[in-house]
Write a protein that binds this DNA or RNA. Structure first.
Length: 489
RNA sequence: GGCCCCGUCGUCUAGCGGCCUAGGACUCUGGCUUCUCAAGCCAGCUACGCGGGUUCGAAUCCCGUCGGGGCUACCA
C-alpha cells in the first residue's frame, strides 16, 4: 500500500463554484477520487459556497453535472447524501456560528472592529515600511470602553482568530515538511461583519466534522494551511487526528501563466461540446503531475484507481498541452466499440442537423462509423465526415469544383458511369474492381488522380472516408446521380 | 517587498549516487505504406537553469545564485 496511515481514508473534493469547473479543478477532483478509490476509502464531495457574492446555483449544478459526466462518482455529498451532511456550506451556517462563538468564549478568537479603510491604511503603511503586511493586532485586547465606543459608532465586528507566537510545521505528502513562522501568519478573519463564515473557518470545521482524513488540494491553498491547523487546535482536535495534507502542483496554460481562455480552454463544458471523451480527459489530466512510474501512459479509469499513489505525484507545475490531449482522445475513440462510438456520435450528428434520428439513419451511421473511427480526434468532427451520406441537396464543395471540370476528369467520370451502371452487386469490392480495371489499367491513370475525381463527385470533397466503402454506403443510385451531376458542372 | 513552493528535450514525464554517450509519449521533420485524409511502421531533431562544493563517481546529495509560480482579502 501507499501512504495510508490508517484505514478509513476519506478524501474530499470541495470546490467553490464561482464559475464553471475548469481543468485545474478537475485534475484535483480526479486525484481526490483516484486516491479514495485506490485506498478503498470514501470520496466526499462538498460545495464551498460561503462567498455568496460569487457562487451561483447554476455553477453549483454545473459542478455536480461535470463530476457525474466524468464518472467521478462520490460516496458522500450532494444528491447522494451521507451521514455528515448537509454538504453545501450555505446550509451549515449555524454550525460555523456555534464554533465561532466557542472560539470567542475560549479567547482563541476576538471581535475586531477595524474598518476596511483602517485595515487598508495599516497595510499601506506596512508596505511602505517594507515589513510583512498583515493585521497588526489592533483589536486583540480592547477595553470595555473601547468596545462600547466602537459599537456606538455602529461598527459591525468581524471575528478574528488569534495566532499564537511560534510557528506551524506540517508534513505535506507531496512536499515534505513545510514550516511557517506565525510572524507571517497574521490573525485572520473567521466571520464577516454580517455574520457569514469565511472559507478559513468553514473548511476547517467541515473537514473535522466530516471526518476527512486526507486533504489533497491545489497548491494555492498551501499557505492557508497554518490557519486551517490553527482552527483544528481551537476545536480541540488532537494532533494525530489532523487530516493529512497534500498540495497538488498547478496546471498552467501554454505560456506558463494560469490557464485561461487566452491560452487553452479551461471550461470542461467546452471539451464536452468539442467531443472529448471523459476517459480521455481523465487519462490526460492524470498524466499532468503524476505518472505510474514507468513508460505507461494509456490508463483506464479502473487502472488509474489501481495505480494511483500520492508519492508519485509531482511537486512541480505542469503545462496543459492541447495536442497531447487530442492525441489521447484519438486513441480513446479508436478503442471504442462501434456501439459505444455510435452512442457518443449520435448527439453530435443530430445537433448538427445531419440526421434527425430515425432508425434507418442510425443504421447507416453505424455502418459508416468504422470508416471514420481512425480519422477523427474529436467527436465534433463526425458530422462533417458523414454529412455526404445524408444531405438532401448535394453539392460539391466550391473549392473542389474546379478540380473535376477539366477534360481529364470529365473522361474519368464518364468512364466511371459506364463501368458502374451495369454492376449488379454494389459492394466496395465490386466497385473497386470495376473502377480499378477501367480507370487505372485501361486508361493508365494514377490512382490518386482517377479516384480523386470520383471522390469529389460522390462525396463533394477532396477528403473523405475510403472511396469505395463510401460509395457502397451511398448506394448505386445516389452515387451515379452525383457522378452525372458532376459531369454537368 | 515579505513568506512559501517549484526548476530533466518545445510540452508531459522516467530517473532516487555508477545500468545515463539521459529512456518513453505528444509535437515537429524525413521516409515507408497508400484511392484522399487518417491510422500504422521506421528514422531524426532537441533537455539535466547557472556556479560552487561532497564523492573514486552527481541529473540524482549540500550550499549559493538565477528564473518561474503562489500567498500576502470581511476570495477560495
Amino acid at each position: 500500500m501507499s501512504t495510508t496511515p490508517g484505514k478509513n481514508v476519506k478524501v474530499r473534493f470541495a470546490p467553490s463554484p464561482t464559475g464553471d469547473l475548469h481543468v485545474g479543478n478537475i485534475r484535483t477532483a480526479l486525484f481526490d477520487w483516484a486516491y479514495a478509490r485506490h485506498t478503498g476509502g470514501t470520496f466526499l464531495f462538498r460545495i464551498e459556497d460561503t462567498d455568496t457574492t460569487r457562487v451561483t446555483d447554476e455553477y453549483i449544478q454545473a459542478a455536480i453535472e461535470t463530476l457525474k459526466w466524468l464518472g467521478l462518482n462520490w460516496d458522500e455529498g450532494p444528491e447522494v447524501g451521507g451521514d455528515n451532511g448537509p454538504y453545501l456550506q450555505s446550509q451549515r451556517l449555524g454550525i460555523y456560528a456555534e464554533w465561532a462563538q466557542k472560539f470567542l468564549d475560549q479567547k482563541d478568537a476576538y471581535h475586531c472592529y477595524c474598518s476596511a479603510e483602517e485595515l487598508e491604511a495599516v497595510r499601506e503603511a506596512q508596505r511602505a515600511a517594507n515589513v510583512a503586511p498583515g493585521y497588526n493586532g489592533h483589536c486583540r485586547d480592547l477595553t470595555t470602553e473601547q468596545i462600547t465606543s466602537y459599537k456606538g459608532e455602529g461598527r459591525l465586528p468581524v471575528v478574528r482568530m488569534r495566532m499564537p507566537d511560534g510557528g506551524t510545521t506540517f508534513n505535506d505528502l507531496i512536499r515534505g515538511d513545510v514550516s511557517f513562522d506565525h510572524k507571517f501568519v497574521p490573525d485572520f478573519v473567521l466571520v464577516r461583519g454580517d455574520g457569514s463564515p469565511l472559507y478559513t473557518l468553514a473548511v476547517a470545521v467541515d473537514d473535522v466534522l466530516m471526518k476527512v482524513t486526507h486533504v489533497l488540494r491545489g497548491e494555492d491553498l498551501l499557505s492557508s494551511t497554518p490557519r486551517q491547523i490553527r482552527v483544528y487546535q481551537a476545536m480541540g482536535l488532537a494532533i494525530q487526528d489532523y487530516p493529512v495534507f497534500a498540495h497538488l502542483p498547478f496546471v498552467m496554460g501554454q505560456d506558463n501563466a494560469k490557464l485561461s481562455k487566452r491560452n487553452g480552454e479551461v471550461s470542461i463544458a467546452w471539451y464536452r461540446d468539442k467531443g472529448f471523451l471523459p476517459e480521455a480527459i481523465c487519462n490526460y489530466l492524470a498524466l499532468l503531475g503524476w505518472s505510474p512510474g514507468d513508460d505507461r501512459e494509456n490508463v483506464t479509469m479502473k487502472e488509474l484507481t489501481e495505480l494511483f499513489t500520492v508519492e508519485k505525484v509531482h511537486s512541480s507545475p505542469a503545462r496543459f498541452d492541447m495536442k497531447k490531449l487530442e492525441a489521447i482522445n484519438g486513441d480513446k475513440i479508436r478503442a471504442l466499440t462501434i456501439d459505444e462510438f455510435l452512442d457518443w456520435s449520435l448527439p453530435f450528428l443530430t445537433k448538427a442537423g445531419v440526421i434527425t434520428g430515425t432508425a434507418d439513419e442510425i443504421a447507416l451511421v453505424k455502418l459508416a462509423l468504422p470508416l471514420i473511427q481512425e480519422r477523427i480526434i474529436m467527436l465534433s468532427e463526425v458530422p462533417a465526415m458523414l454529412k455526404f451520406l445524408f444531405v438532401k441537396e448535394f453539392a460539391v464543395e466550391t473549392d473542389s469544383v474546379a478540380k473535376i471540370t477539366d477534360d481529364a476528369s470529365k473522361a474519368v467520370l464518364k468512364r466511371s458511369i459506364q463501368e458502374l451502371e451495369p454492376l449488379t452487386t454494389w459492394t466496395h469490392e465490386s466497385i473497386e474492381v470495376a473502377l480499378r480495371s477501367s480507370l487505372i489499367e485501361d486508361m493508365g491513370l494514377k490512382p490518386r488522380i482517377a479516384f480523386g475525381a470520383v471522390r469529389i463527385a460522390t462525396t463533394g470533397s477532396t477528403i473523405s472516408p475510403p472511396l469505395f466503402e463510401s460509395m457502397e454506403l451511398l448506394g448505386k443510385q445516389a452515387s451515379l446521380a452525383r457522378i452525372r451531376a458532376g459531369l454537368e458542372l
